[in-house]
Design a protein around this nucleic acid. Sequence first.
RNA 1: UGUCCCGUGGUGUAACUGGCAACACGUCUGAUUUUGGUUCAGAAGAGUCUAGGUUCGAGCCCUAGCGGGACAACCA
Length: 567
Amino acid sequence: MSENTSDNKKSVVKTRNFIHEIVEKDLLEGKNGGRVHTRFPPEPNGYLHIGHAKAICLDFGTAQKFGGKCNLRFDDTNPSKEDQEYVDSIMEDVRWLGFDWEDRLYYASDFFDKLHEFAVKLIKEGKAYVDDQPADIISQQRGTPTKPGVESPYRKRPVDENLALFERMKNGDFPNGHCVLRAKIDMASPNMHLRDPLMYRIMHAEHHRTGNKWCIYPMYDFAHGQCDYFEGITHSLCTLEFEIHRPLYSWFVDNLADSDYRPRQIEFSRLNLTYTMMSKRKLLQLVEEGLVSGWDDPRMPTISGMRRRGFTPASIRNFVEKVGITKTEGMVDVAMLEHALREDLNKNAQRVMGVINPLKVIITNFPEDKVDMVDAVNNPEDESAGTRKVPFTREIYIERDDFMEDPPKKFFRLSPGTEVRMRYAYFITCNNVVKDDEGNVIELHCTYDPASRGGNSPDGRKVKSTLHWVSATENVEAEVRLYDRLFMVEDPANQKDSDFRQLLNPESLLVLNKCFIEPSVKNAKPLDQFQFERLGYFNVDKDNSDEKMVFNRTVSLRDNWAKQMGK
RNA sequence: UGUCCCGUGGUGUAACUGGCAACACGUCUGAUUUUGGUUCAGAAGAGUCUAGGUUCGAGCCCUAGCGGGACAACCA
């Protein structure tokens, strides 16, 4: 397991982190019979986001790295918040990211019977009791982090009475909140989670899997570690906020275990991304208040949103790999994510020409009805992608940004009197600028050099730039959606004094119509990806139809010119 | 006034368990280029939160501070 050498490039997980070191050590010491078994345990109460992707890659990746297994387990102990819709989306997202739980799909609810049995065992051992006090009293008695709690008057309730009461709780004899089952640990512990934590609460609610079988449901702490144990998990990886739960996790498991085997909880820091909000609650709010179009709005940091936006599974996996796993809480620059995205797309995206902000150009010396099919390379990074034909005609569109009537010195593109190359087609020279009554440029009259077909002049003449273009008569008209960061501030989650809704970027979505794309994209299907040359990476949105093509800009190309202009 | 965790260039990580801090992103040069993309070459930028200590030698070990975070849901 120590062959993490450079020739091990096939391995999905190339890097090593502190968790891998722990696993290696456990293996070396012969723990758990040399098994490595992890799990990804989402609660089905929302859609997965990029932060979950980090956990998924770690959980599945660690198992893969050590030849172990990883389960998918839905942590469905709170029927009031959970839903089948979320279960379905989570499974789709995990698969899409490239991971497979094979036949190991579990639900915490699969273990409700065993959990109940275990609770009864604890009661019999005098380690759990039924508390009749209302929530606010129990909360009050718990003390504060700096002040010890006081014991419940019901703490010394006899075993038989506890057993009978718990049975009645289970049978539905009591209304919600009437009483709870608590573990008897230590009300004076400096760790609040050990101050007689709740194990079960009464909740008359229909569960998405167990229906109405239960009206008591286990709390997270009374379910998670035990489920790990039942499934044979060896390394239970979770985020930092559960660190303080670990002693409780161990307490329950130690009371349950009948062998040397123990699942072990290890915590790592969650992912924070600049200009991004990762809280499930807030994401739900964005969806419910219609601030975005849905969980899969391309501006959302959800896996489904990113998928729709055009992210690839590999780009997300690579990003997670680059970010690493530690216990330090930081904030990763989205630029890192975008880099991983561009890196993958550059290698794989089909190139195509599209003009999203058109300016008409008439090639005055080009034959009226001629459709000149020129050869274009599909992907300069991948020769096997081949070439295609693109129609060049007398009237074409170029990008408005590619023309300036009165350009600054470093502007290489088209301006009156200059010659530029139309990619894969001809050199053209701008002779005349046509304006409307208000002085807006509406059309350019140019001439082309017939000898420059393909993009080179036989006399070896050079031009300073190459422009993309689309025939004004042979094209596909499309709607193009441009996206920008959803939030205007780097750390929207930490703007304590302002409502996060006020931090939303009003220009996060810009819809452009009358965009023209070369005809080759006509039969593209939702999710198909392209690079619109010189503009960025785009994919076909699910709103696409035969009547109207719809593209999303996944991410722009890096643009040094725009950067210079910005200064 | 508690317990636990964290503290390395702007950002994210690394440093073979003590040997004069490396990689990626970002930034800035320059070269190449039928994408102002890609690629390539190079540069700037930290002396590792602070102060002591151990040691021939400390980012790594010890002590004390400082700073940040988590914990008081019948949420997970």
